[in-house]
């Protein structure tokens, strides 16, 4: 009981939803209860989860990053061109591509933190720019945009299909990045600075925190995570294309917001995002197994997004109303 009371209520709700989901989908199709199928399904949403972890950091500082999806496409194309057309070693090209993704994030971060332009606008420009660069790279190198670049070595496809001690490597990656993000946000000074920046940037500035550096760094992290996601997706699908990840935007934001992170910043957590990404991922897998056409999955995610945000805001406003009722009357006059 003591353990239960320590878990935030929102996360408890998410765990409950996840259990419910597993039970319902299992009743519809018993194959859903097969552990190895469930574990392997992580490959389908690992990209969303990875980016979601670090977009959570961005959102806690009060920003937003919608360019992640297009960075996936860019990373994928860079890996393909460097390794297949130029002939670099596959792992060197992967590292270079992830560095490129980090640079994209750095550009976002510098413009947002130091140029003081709205995060939404900058990352919207980034969304166009990065996918644009990917398309240009594909166009210049003369590859068919539809087929993409393929023919990667087996060691590279092992990244998505391999196992470590019998556990699919995508799950290992999920856990490793989860731990990195969790420790970074909840156990380090840097993480506390992220929260403080989101709660009140001016106050944190006066308190001696270099908020600009904190904000810019969160975008770099989010860019790097998009690079890793792009690498995983390229390995999973076995080809490099510019339009990979373009449909991820909606799911990434759904995962972060469903995880209980406030879009206005200052509040949120990695555990929530991790749970939410599993919920959204299993929802897609379960619906596919249940024979629901893939077109309906968007409807479910859309509804999930709106309902979860509505619940979050209703519960917080209900709390506020309770406070107002309990407080003496003069507070109200002061507000007017």
């Amino acid at each position: 009981m003591l353990m239960l009371s320590k878990i935030p209520k929102w996360n408890l709700g998410l765990i409950f939803v996840l259990m419910l989901e597993i039970i319902i989908f299992g009743l519809i199709n018993p194959r859903f209860w097969n552990i190895s199928i469930l574990l392997n399904s992580f490959n389908d949403f690992i990209g969303i989860a990875i980016i979601g972890f670090f977009v959570t950091l961005v959102m806690i500082t009060g920003g937003i990053d919608i360019s992640g999806g297009s960075i996936i496409g860019l990373t994928s194309v860079v890996i393909g061109i460097l390794s297949q057309l130029i002939g670099l070693n596959i792992w060197i090209s992967v590292i270079l591509a992830i560095v490129a993704a980090g640079l994209c994030g750095l550009l976002n971060g510098i413009l947002i933190a130091y140029g003081r332009v709205q995060a939404m606008v900058v990352t919207l420009g980034g969304l166009l720019l990065y996918s644009g660069i990917a398309i240009v790279l594909v166009g210049v190198s003369g590859v068919s945009a539809y087929e993409g670049i393929s023919g990667f070595p087996g060691s590279f496809s092992n990244l998505a299909y391999g196992t470590v001690f019998g556990i699919p490597s995508s799950i290992i990656l999920f856990i490793v990045l989860f731990i990195i993000a969790y420790v970074l946000l909840h156990f380090t000074k840097y993480g506390r600075y992220i929260f403080l920046t989101g709660i009140n940037q001016h106050a944190s500035d006066y308190a001696g925190i270099n908020t600009k550096k904190v904000i810019a760094s969160t975008y770099v992290l989010s860019g790097l995570s998009a690079g890793i996601a792009g690498t995983m997706l390229t390995s999973y699908l076995g080809s490099a294309r510019a339009d990979f990840g373009s449909e991820y935007l909606m799911s990434i934001l759904t995962v972060v917001v469903l995880g209980g992170t406030l879009i206005t910043g200052g509040k949120g957590g990695i555990i929530g995002t991790a749970l939410a990404s599993i919920i959204v991922g299993f929802l897609q897998v379960g619906m596919q197994m249940g024979g629901v056409s893939t077109q309906y999955i968007g409807l479910a995610t859309g509804l999930l997004l709106i309902i979860s945000v509505a619940l979050l805001s209703i519960s917080s406003s209900a709390k506020e109303n309770m406070k107002k009722l309990l407080r003496p009357k003069f507070m109200k006059e002061g507000n007017v």
Binding site: M250, L253, T301, G302, L303, V309
Partner: peptide, 14 residues
């Protein structure tokens, strides 16, 4: 009181 970005993003998908 849903943020307009989230509300319309969900609506876009729906």
């Amino acid at each position: 009181k849903i943020s307009s970005f989230i509300m319309t993003l969900g609506m876009l998908e729906i």
